[in-house]
Amino acid sequence: MKERGGDHESYLLRLLERGAHTRRSLEERLLRRGADGTEIAALLGRFEALGYIDDGLYARLYVEGHGDRGKRRLRDDLRRRGVAEATIAAALEEKDDEEEAAFGLALQWHERGVESRLIAGRLLRRGFPPALVRSLLDRLERKAP
């Protein structure tokens, strides 16, 4: 059962009131609600023009809010959410030093007694590069009493 256009607009407003979304995620949700492609394009275009939908801002906020992840993981997460490659690249340029973030996590886990192989797995799953993980583990081993 298709909803009237105003209902889709109200639905879109409710989604945006709850938090930021990418254009693609909103498009997918509207499709599931029964909106047609023309209506979706018009609604999303209007909301984008008003500044309610901004994939660049979404990407920057996502990167900022997930400082415990490596650039690879952040890139993959944003791709899955439908953010364009150029937008992702711009957001990742602003990311703090990846090595510093990874070392902080590794040190914290090391001090709690987590084994090196488990620390490595955690860092790799968070998207930190394997060479960096090896380097950090070497650094921790040298630091250990």
Rank of each mutant, 00 (worst) to 15 (best):
M1A: 12
Q108L: 14
Q108H: 15
L12D: 00
R69Q: 12
E98W: 10
L137C: 07
L50K: 08
R80L: 11
E94S: 11
R18D: 03
S25P: 00
R73H: 04
L132F: 13
F47R: 13
T87H: 10
G51A: 08
G127P: 01
D97H: 12
L31G: 06
D7H: 12
L61W: 12
R117F: 08
I40P: 01
G37C: 07
D7F: 15
P145R: 12
G70Q: 08
H66Y: 05
Q108M: 12
E93N: 07
V63P: 00
L43S: 05
R81V: 02
L61N: 05
E85I: 02
R117C: 03
G70E: 03
G65V: 05
W109Y: 14
A20M: 14
A91F: 12
E141I: 04
H21D: 02
I88T: 03
D36I: 07
K143L: 13
G113W: 10
D76P: 00
G5M: 07
E27F: 12
R79N: 02
S25V: 10
R72M: 05
E9W: 15
E100V: 14
L30D: 00
A84Y: 06
R23D: 06
A20Y: 15
Q108D: 09
E94V: 13
L26F: 12
L123F: 13
P130L: 04
A144T: 05
A42K: 14
E111T: 06
G34C: 08
R46A: 10
G6D: 04
L136S: 03
R81G: 01
L26H: 06
S10F: 15
R80S: 03
G70K: 10
D7Y: 14
L136F: 05
A120D: 00
D96K: 15
L44D: 02
R75H: 07
R46E: 05
R79P: 00
G127Q: 09
T22G: 01
R80Q: 05
G51F: 15
R81N: 01
L137G: 04
R75A: 03
L57R: 13
R125N: 06
L140G: 00
V83M: 02
D55W: 10
G45H: 10
R29P: 00
R122P: 00
L44Q: 06
R32T: 03
L107N: 08
D97C: 09
F103S: 04
G82H: 10
L16P: 01
L136H: 05
E94A: 13
L30K: 03
R4C: 01
E28H: 12
R75S: 00
R32Y: 04
E64H: 09
A41F: 11
Y52D: 01
G82P: 00
A35L: 10
A41L: 13
Y52I: 05
R72W: 14
K95W: 06
R122T: 07
V83S: 01
S116H: 14
E3C: 06
G37W: 10
G56I: 04
H110V: 01
R142Q: 11
T22S: 10
L50P: 00
R142N: 05
H21E: 04
R75W: 13
R117N: 06
R142M: 04
R46F: 15
R14A: 12
A35D: 03
G121D: 11
R72I: 05
L13T: 06
I53T: 06
H110P: 00
